[in-house]
Computed example of a mutant assay.
Amino acid sequence: MQRKVVQPNEFTDLGEVRDRLRAFEDRYNATAQPFQWRSTTSDLDDLLARLDRHTTDRQEESSVTPAA
């Protein structure tokens, strides 16, 4: 939306931003079509688990202080 609606940033007031966003919403809703997801919920669960492990590993690494 930022690339299609609010750039360049040449608005004089918030009302102009609101009007442009609403016009975009109307155009988008008139032409929007469903799409097929390529990922499954299992794929998303796997990704989130990997991210969680990565975050946990990083936190453990940062909490270990080097021996003097």
Score class of each variant (00 low, 15 high):
A32H: 13
A23Q: 15
T31D: 15
R3C: 02
L48H: 09
Q2F: 09
D45C: 04
Q2W: 14
S62Q: 15
D52K: 07
S42E: 12
Q36N: 08
V5P: 00
G15N: 14
P34N: 04
D52P: 00
D13H: 11
W37S: 15
Q59P: 04
H54A: 10
A32V: 14
R58M: 06
T55A: 12
P34Y: 02
F35H: 07
E25T: 06
L51R: 07
R3S: 11
E60D: 07
R3V: 06
D57E: 08
T12I: 06
P8L: 00
A30T: 08
L47I: 04
T65V: 14
A30C: 02
L51I: 03
R18Y: 09
A49C: 01
R22V: 13
S62D: 11
W37H: 14
Q36D: 07
T12E: 15
H54F: 08
K4A: 09
R38D: 08
A30P: 06
T65R: 15
R20K: 14
T41R: 04
T56G: 03
R22C: 14
V64N: 11
R27H: 06
S39K: 05
R3A: 10
E61A: 11
N9W: 15
R3Q: 10
L44Q: 06
D26N: 12
V64M: 09
E61W: 09
L14F: 15
L14C: 07
Q2Y: 14
T55L: 12
D19R: 13
A67C: 03
D57H: 01
D43E: 00
K4H: 05
P66F: 08
V6L: 15
T12P: 03
R27L: 13
L51C: 05
V6H: 05
S42I: 02
S63M: 13
R3H: 11
D13W: 05
Q2R: 07
S62G: 01
D52F: 03
R53H: 03
A23F: 07
P34Q: 03
V64W: 08
T40E: 01
Y28A: 12
G15V: 02
A49H: 10
A32N: 12
W37K: 14
D52M: 00
T41H: 00
E60C: 04
P66T: 08
L14K: 04
F35Y: 14
S62K: 14
K4C: 03
R50C: 01
R50N: 01
R20N: 04
S39F: 09
E25S: 09
Q2L: 10
T31I: 13
D57S: 01
E16F: 02
F11E: 03
A49N: 03
D43L: 00
N9T: 12
N29Q: 15
A23D: 14
R50V: 01
R53E: 03
G15H: 08
Q2V: 09
Q36G: 03
T65S: 13
A23S: 13
S42C: 02
W37T: 11
L14A: 09
R53S: 06
T40N: 02
N9R: 13
R27F: 06
V17L: 13
A67M: 10
D57I: 00
L44G: 01
P66H: 06
G15W: 07
L48R: 15
P8V: 00
T56K: 08
K4G: 03
E60T: 04
